[in-house]
C-alpha cells in the first residue's frame, strides 16, 4: 500500500528548491520544499508535545515562522535550520504551557556542527587508528552495539535479537556510543 503521495518534483533536490526560491522569490518552491518536511516536523512536534492535535497546530505555526524567516537571510544547511526552528518552537510552547524550565541554548546550531569537519584535517589512517583506540575505551554494551550497527550493518531489531538488549537500550547505546567516540577522538586530537 502506497501511503505517501508521490512527489512529482522528486527530481529537484532540496538545495535546488532553496536556490530557486532565493533566485526568484516564488513561494511555489517553498511549498514543495516544506511539504517534504511535513512528516518529519509533525514527528518532532509529536515527540515534544505528545498530543496529535497540538502537534498539528504546532507544525502550522512552524510553517508560518519559516515562511517569514527564510527570505530574511540565506540558509545553507536547511535540514539543520528547520530542525532548530522546530525544536525551539516546541520547547517554547512547552515552557509557556507548563512553566517548565527548559534550557534553550542560544547556539543550538553547534549541536549540528559537522563533527567530521573538525577531523577533516586528519588523515584517514590516523583517524582509523584513533577510532580503534577510542572504541576500546567504550563500555562493552556501547562498543558491541556500535560494531554491530556500523560494521555489520545490522538493524536495531537484529541487534536486539543478537544481544538480548531492549530496543530502547540498543538505540541509546548507539547514540551515546557515537557521541562518546567523537568526544574521545576530539580529546586525543587536541592533545597531539
Amino acid at each position: 500500500m502506497k501511503t505517501v503521495n508521490h512527489d512529482p518534483n522528486n527530481h529537484i533536490t532540496d538545495q535546488e528548491l532553496l536556490d530557486r526560491f532565493y533566485a526568484d522569490g516564488k513561494k511555489e518552491w517553498l511549498g514543495i520544499l516544506l511539504s517534504r518536511y511535513t512528516l518529519l516536523l509533525f514527528g518532532v512536534c509529536m515527540k515534544y508535545l505528545k498530543q496529535e492535535e497540538e502537534a498539528k497546530d504546532c507544525v502550522q505555526q512552524i510553517f508560518v515562522k519559516i515562511i517569514i524567516e527564510l527570505p530574511k537571510y540565506r540558509v545553507t544547511y536547511f535540514k539543520s535550520w528547520i530542525y532548530t526552528i522546530a525544536r525551539n518552537h516546541c520547547l517554547m510552547k512547552l515552557r509557556d504551557q507548563h512553566g517548565r524550565k527548559v534550557e534553550l541554548s542560544e547556539n543550538m546550531l553547534a549541536d549540528w556542527d559537522d563533527a567530521s569537519g573538525k577531523n577533516r584535517h586528519l588523515e584517514k589512517d590516523r583517524l582509523l587508528e584513533l577510532m580503534g583506540e577510542s572504541l576500546e575505551e567504550l563500555g562493552e554494551e556501547q562498543k558491541r552495539c556500535i560494531l554491530l550497527f556500523y560494521l555489520e550493518k545490522r538493524s536495531y531489531q537484529e541487534i536486539v535479537d543478537v544481544t538480548g538488549y531492549t530496543l530502547m537500550q540498543v538505540k541509546s547505546y548507539i547514540q551515546n556510543g557515537k557521541r562518546n567516540l567523537k568526544l574521545l577522538i576530539e580529546r586525543k586530537t587536541s592533545k597531539t
Binding site: 559537522d114 577531523n119 584517514k124 582509523l128 587508528e129 577510532m131 556500523y150 560494521l151
Partner: peptide, 11 residues
C-alpha cells in the same frame, strides 16, 4: 580497522 567505522563521524 574497517573503513565503515568512519561513518560514525558522518552526519
Amino acid at each position: 580497522m574497517n573503513d565503515d567505522l568512519l561513518n560514525i563521524l558522518s552526519n
